[in-house]
């Protein structure tokens, strides 16, 4: 991707950040899967900037406020995704990039990562920030693929992000606590949910957002051929879609003075104890 920070004086710390932000169906609607295409139904459904992506935008804005630099929001989606990109611009991001092309419909996660990588490579960034996963399909696969395609390290599950000199330092959430990891810029970072509270856009920010540039690219504009992306380029195929199995009826434990023992036995039978 990237202009390397090390080519600049060390004290000149500004960071240019690309944030990958997806538009997802608003949380008030139940996501439906089209049984024919086996894709999330998006036509006629209100969309919003993914709340997880809004946290990524917020983290990027905090970094550029501390160090200088600019935030660019990159998304792949339908043409009306510009409305959601504008929300990120109203928060303070400087410009937007939308990759939108009928040829991209049906892309698998790798196809999506290729499109995002190709668009990001057209710019000069020191850091890419993504949500850990989107809140509509929750695959969590794109950031890792994107880091690989960009040839940069991925620091994942960040709960805290700092830039120190030419390095990004991340406090990384794990199942058992946290780790502090670092990598030379340029780098890709995924942020955990709850890392911050996205700011409310100000009215001036909202008015200013309509004057900010949103570049729209087709697949060809970013150098991708139809066989690399979309349905035809997809390497994964959704075979079936079904509802999750209904939960079996629970077990009622009647306490006849031996409730504790019964519960312990039950847990032992599940090999939890």
């Amino acid at each position: 991707m990237a202009r390397h920070l090390l080519t600049r004086p060390v004290e000149w710390l500004f960071v240019n950040i690309a944030v990958c932000a997806k538009c997802v169906p608003i949380s008030a609607v139940t996501i439906e899967i089209d049984p024919t295409t086996k894709r999330v139904k998006r036509e006629g459904v209100s969309h919003e900037l993914d709340p997880a992506a809004a946290s990524a935008v917020e983290e990027a804005l905090r970094l550029v406020e501390a160090h200088g630099g600019e935030v660019t929001v990159v998304t792949m989606g339908m043409p009306n995704a510009v409305d959601e990109i504008r929300k990120a611009l109203a928060m303070g991001a400087e410009r937007g990039v939308l990759i939108s092309d009928p040829a991209l419909a049906g892309s698998d996660t790798l196809g999506t990562a290729k499109a995002l990588a190709a668009a990001i490579k057209k710019g000069q960034y020191d850091m890419v920030i993504c949500a850990t996963e989107s809140t509509d399909t929750y695959s969590g696969l794109v950031p890792g693929q994107l880091a690989e395609l960009l040839g940069v390290a991925a620091l994942t599950f960040a709960k805290k992000v700092k830039v120190e000199g030419s390095k990004a330092v991340v406090r990384r959430q794990t199942d058992f606590g946290y780790q502090v990891v670092e990598a030379e810029l340029p780098v890709l970072i995924t942020v955990s949910s709850g890392i911050n509270e996205p700011r409310y856009p100000s009215l001036k920010g909202i008015m200013g957002a309509k004057r900010k540039e949103i570049a729209t690219y087709s697949a060809a504009d970013v150098g991708l051929s139809p066989d690399q992306v979309g349905e035809s380029g997809a390497r994964e195929k959704v075979l079936t879609v079904g509802k999750p199995p209904t939960r079996a009826q629970g077990t009622v434990v009647t306490d006849e003075g031996d409730g504790g023992v019964k519960i312990a036995d039950f847990l032992a039978s599940l090999k939890v104890l």
Binding site: I26, S27, R86
Partner: peptide
């Protein structure tokens, strides 16, 4: 969330508003 459930708008007046 960064958005709330949609406002009460039975007559679709939201369509008449500017994006801002």
């Amino acid at each position: 969330s960064v958005s709330s459930p949609p406002p009460l708008d039975f007559l679709g007046l939201r369509d008449l508003l500017s994006p801002e």
